[in-house]
Write a protein that binds this DNA or RNA. Structure first.
Length: 423
DNA sequence: TCTGGGGTCCTAGGACCC
DNA sequence: TCTGGGGTCCTAGGACCC
C-alpha cells in the first residue's frame, strides 16, 4: 500500500487570505463561534505563541502589541473552498478519501505510470495552489499513520518543498519517527501522550518499539493498531465511500447566558429545525432524539446545572415539525428555573434510511402533504439562504445569538457579497 | 466580560436471559 | 466458609479526531 496525505496549511487562515491578500505575512487567527477560541493560526501567529484552541481573551493584547488580526469564522467560505480543493484532487488522483474539511488521503498504488511520486505530488501541490489559492503539504508512506507523520515533517521542513516521501529511502521512516514526539502521532491524544511519556515513551520511534502487552493494557486495541501502522503494517485502508452518518448534532453556546425559558426554547427551535434539515439532506430518518442544556461551566461562582434526556421518535422521522415538537417538549421537561443557561443542543440518534425500516410495522413517517411541505422548505432555504423560511416563534434579536464581530463576507456563496475588482 | 462544534469508536458495567 | 457459568443487549463515559 502507498498513501499520500494532502493537508491544507493553516486552512481557515489560508481561505481568508485568498480574498484578503493584504493578510499575507501578518499574524492571523480565525476564532470559533462567539469569537471564543483561536481555531486556526497563521505561521506568524504560531510564532507569537498562540496555541490551538486558546481563548481569545488571553491573546487579545496581541492585537494592539503585535498587529494580530482576529477574524470570526466564516464556514460558508471554508466549506466552499474545501470543495474546490477536493475536486482538484479528485481530478488528478484515481482514488480519494476526503477525511476532513482540509485533508484527503490519496491511493498511490494504482499509479504505476508515475515514476517519481514526490515529483508528481509537487506538481499536484502547485496545481491546487494555482487553481484554488490554497497551499497544501503532502506526506507519502506505506500506512495512513505514517503518511500523517510524513505530512507533519513536510510542513516543517523548508527544503522538502511541501512534499515528503518516506517510501523512497529505507532509513527515512526511522529517522522521521525519531523526529516526531509521541503526542504528535495520529491517534495519540493528550491523555495517552502523558501516559506514554510517563512510561519513558517519548518519540514515535519509542512507541513503534513499545511492548505490545503494555500498549494493549494502556490504550487497548486502538493503541495497538496505531503501533502496527507505525511499524509499517497498514491497518486502515482508503475509505472512498462515505459511511452513513450515525448521529446529527446541532448545539451552540449562547452569546450571553439567559435564565429565560422562552429564549432557550427559541434557540432549541432553531437547532432542532437545522438538525432535521441536515437529516433530510442525508436522506435519513431518526428513531430517537436527545436534548441537553447546561449553565456556563467557567463561571464556577454561579449555580451549575447540566442535564440531558432522550425520547424515542416513533415512527422514525425527518419531519421538522415532529422533531421540533419532541425537542421542545423534552427541553421543557428538563427545565429548572433559577439558573443562567449558556448552552443547549439536540442530538438525533438511531438514524436509519427509511427504505431499511420494517415495512408494515409502522405507519408512514409523515403524510405526503407534510413531506411535500418539507421539500418546499428545503428548496427555499437552499435557494434563499438558511432561515429564509422557518417555523414561527423564532426570535431574531435574542441574546443567545452568537457573537461574530469580525466575519469576512461570504465571498463565494452569496451574490450580494461577491468581491468586485477595480482596475 | 471573555473559554467552539460535530463527529467516531471502544470499553466497562449493569440488566436480563437460560 | 460458602453463594454457576455463559451469553446478549444497552448505556454511559472516556478516549480520540478535525
Amino acid at each position: 500500500m502507498k498513501f499520500a496525505l494532502v493537508d491544507c496549511n493553516n486552512f481557515y487562515v489560508s481561505c481568508e487570505r485568498v480574498f484578503r491578500p493584504d493578510l499575507n505575512g501578518l499574524p492571523v487567527v480565525v476564532l470559533s463561534n462567539n469569537d471564543g477560541c483561536a481555531v486556526a493560526r497563521s505561521n506568524e501567529a504560531k510564532a507569537l505563541g498562540v496555541a490551538m484552541g486558546q481563548p481569545f481573551f488571553e491573546i487579545k493584547h496581541l492585537v494592539e502589541s503585535h498587529g494580530l488580526v482576529a477574524l470570526s469564522s466564516n464556514y460558508a467560505l471554508y466549506g466552499d473552498i474545501s470543495n474546490r480543493v477536493m475536486s482538484v484532487l479528485a481530478d488528478e488522483a484515481p482514488q480519494v478519501e476526503v477525511y476532513s474539511i482540509d485533508e484527503s488521503f490519496l491511493d498511490l498504488d494504482n499509479m504505476v505510470s508515475v515514476q517519481d511520486l514526490a515529483g508528481w505530488c509537487r506538481q499536484l501541490r502547485r496545481r491546487v495552489r494555482l487553481w484554488t489559492g490554497i497551499p497544501v503539504s503532502i506526506g507519502i508512506a506505506n500506512t495512513k499513520t505514517l503518511a500523517k507523520v510524513a505530512n507533519r515533517l513536510a510542513k516543517k521542513s523548508a527544503k522538502a518543498d511541501g512534499v515528503l516521501d518516506l517510501t523512497s529511502r529505507s532509513d527515512w521512516v526511522e529517522m522521521a519517527l525519531r523526529r516526531t514526539e509521541v503526542g504528535d502521532v495520529w491517534g495519540i491524544g493528550n491523555r495517552w501522550s502523558k501516559v506514554c511519556v510517563g512510561a519513558g515513551i517519548v518519540t514515535a520511534f519509542d512507541l513503534s518499539r513499545a511492548n505490545p502487552g503494555w500498549i494493549r493494557k494502556a490504550m487497548g486495541n486502538v493503541g495497538l493498531r496505531t503501533v502496527m501502522e507505525l511499524q509499517g503494517t497498514a491497518v486502515y485502508s482508503l475509505e472512498t465511500e462515505p459511511a452513513d452518518r450515525k448521529t446529527v448534532c446541532v448545539s451552540r453556546s449562547f452569546g450571553s447566558a439567559t435564565a429565560s425559558m422562552e429564549e432557550v426554547r427559541g434557540a432549541m427551535l432553531e437547532y432542532a429545525s437545522r438538525a432535521a434539515a441536515k437529516l433530510r439532506h442525508d436522506g435519513m430518518v431518526a428513531a430517537g432524539l436527545q436534548v441537553f442544556v447546561s449553565t456556563d461551566r467557567f463561571r464556577s461562582e454561579d449555580p451549575q446545572r447540566a442535564v440531558s434526556g432522550s425520547v424515542k421518535l416513533s415512527p422514525a422521522t425527518a419531519d421538522t415539525t415532529s422533531i421540533v415538537r419532541a425537542a421542545v417538549q423534552l427541553l421543557e421537561r428538563l427545565w429548572a428555573d433559577g439558573y443562567r443557561y449558556r448552552k443547549t443542543g439536540v442530538l438525533l440518534i438511531d438514524l436509519v434510511r427509511p427504505e431499511d425500516l420494517p415495512r408494515d410495522l409502522f405507519p408512514a413517517a409523515s403524510s405526503p402533504r407534510q413531506a411535500r411541505l418539507m421539500t418546499a422548505l428545503d428548496a427555499a432555504n437552499d435557494r434563499f439562504g438558511r432561515g429564509a423560511l422557518h417555523l414561527g416563534l423564532s426570535a431574531p434579536a435574542a441574546a443567545w445569538r452568537m457573537r461574530r464581530e469580525a466575519k469576512t463576507p461570504s465571498w463565494t456563496t452569496n451574490w450580494r457579497e461577491i468581491p468586485t475588482v477595480t482596475a
